[in-house]
Amino acid sequence: MVSETETVNENEERKLKFGLFLGCNITFNRPDVEQAMRKIFPALGVELDDLAGQSCCPTWGTMPSIDDVGWCAVAARNLCLGEEKGIDLMTACNTCYASLNEARHKMLKNPEIMNSVNEILAKIGRKYEGKAKCRHVTWVLYKDIGLEKLRESIKYTLDGLTIAVQPGCHFLWPSEVYPDREKDPFNPVVLRELCEALGAEAPYYTKLIDCCGIGALRSTDPGKSFALAKDKLECIKEELDADLIVAGCCSCMIQFDDVQDKLRKEGKINFSIPVLHYVQLLAICMGFDPQQVAGICVTPRDEIIKRILEGGKR
């Protein structure tokens, strides 16, 4: 069994390589996030594997709502795709990050679950040994690549911009299950430091760790979901007057992007703050085509992208 903090490809001599785990939302809703990852990682010297045949992580409303073994079996199959190649998975979606790692945690903690899962996997000729895990793009950029290399790799800087970061719940809790952990899960700094490495200000704000309200809440009761998002957006506006919201999670990004438009139309807010996933922001700063790496949005991004490209050339 590999310890929690160890990575499969720890050997510095070896080239960094990860299985790019896409999940559903990025694949179908926001493929610009996928494209951003496909651009930035090779440019940063990280090899990506497609993990051909990967599926849904599975998300909370599916197998996790049925039972542990079914949840873990679907997750384990995805993890196997990496494990068989000796690599870890990497995702830009917090749900995938949480579902895969929580499932792994359950399997490692409870041999009964692990055995039942492997009985099922045997039927498709696979076996999960608990080695491969899912890493978060945020952590890979922060820990494996490092802020210094990011600073060197960008063509445009974000000097003068203020960013409100949104690490997202499943980047933080339950901290026990994740391969990488913030020193203080109630005062996360990794995403802030990543934004600052690009030249922006990314200050703390009061509701930094509050939930965006997407997921089951939004599908069950959109009104309540939007109310939660509004609460947080207003804090971002009032405390930071942010130029940009940067999420580490694709779902949070979608939520804030969508919701602002809806709230504006309902006359509930009167501002518009563009929203990007961090990998998209990085891709733009590295000089990739914004249409490809950040071309899909509801809340307009044109102005901020223009400002970045015009204002921040180094």
Binding site: F186, T206, L208, I209
Partner: peptide, 8 residues
């Protein structure tokens, strides 16, 4: 109390 968050 479940959480305390710093204000600016």
């Amino acid at each position: 109390i479940g959480g305390v968050q710093r204000l600016p």
